[in-house]
């Protein structure tokens, strides 16, 4: 091969350097993440009549505590709770037993404290009150900014009434 030809081939190679940036998939995720971000920690006021001994409220709280979502739940939810959201989607529950043991739990985790005997140990003793439990479930970061617990009301996963149901269940005698 002539020197000049080699030269021009080399030059050609660098001018037309391969560019694969247009042929690979590189979808955008930053918008998805942006819309999905957790809002700053928020303090909530417990609604009037929130914590109750009403068995229906306690039953809903228990169901939310022990189940992951409507699709996975084996039993039907108690009165006032659905397996679907208003717009027909799979309703998410608390899946609290993923991290907490409690009376009657099956396959409980131990990332969070054991909530067995909560009324006697924490409420009757005066160490905690209903307001604390409500806020802990609604947004645990107020009490512990480095918590590993889920945020349940700031994220709008639940309504205040549902947080009341869960609180009622935890502080109820079992």
């Amino acid at each position: 091969m002539k020197k000049t030809l080699i030269m021009s081939l080399l030059v050609g190679a660098s001018v037309f350097a391969a560019d694969y940036s247009g042929v690979i998939q590189k979808p955008n995720a930053s918008k998805l993440i942006e819309k999905d971000l957790l809002a700053p920690a928020k303090t909530f006021t417990m609604p009037a009549g929130c914590v109750t001994t009403n068995p229906e409220s306690i039953a809903r709280g228990a169901f939310i505590f022990h189940n992951l979502n409507g699709k996975k739940a084996k039993k039907n939810p108690p009165k006032g709770l659905s397996k679907k959201t208003a717009d027909g989607k799979n309703k998410q529950y608390g899946n609290c037993i993923a991290c907490h043991n409690i009376e009657g739990a099956r396959g409980a985790g131990n990332i969070g404290p054991d909530l067995t005997g909560y009324k006697a140990t924490f409420i009757d003793s005066g160490v905690r009150d209903n307001k604390f439990v409500f806020q802990k479930i609604a947004d645990p970061r107020i009490d512990n900014k480095d918590t590993h617990m889920t945020v349940n009301l700031t994220t709008k996963l639940f309504t205040p009434a549902e947080i009341c149901d869960i609180t009622s269940y935890i502080v109820s005698p079992k």
Binding site: A98, G109, N110, H148, T150
Partner: peptide, 19 residues
């Protein structure tokens, strides 16, 4: 649920049991 990867995979929780 306001979680990050680190919520479940940080040193503080490794080895504990999630469901």
């Amino acid at each position: 649920r306001g979680l990050s990867c680190n919520s479940c995979h940080s040193d503080a929780v490794i080895g504990s049991v999630l469901r």
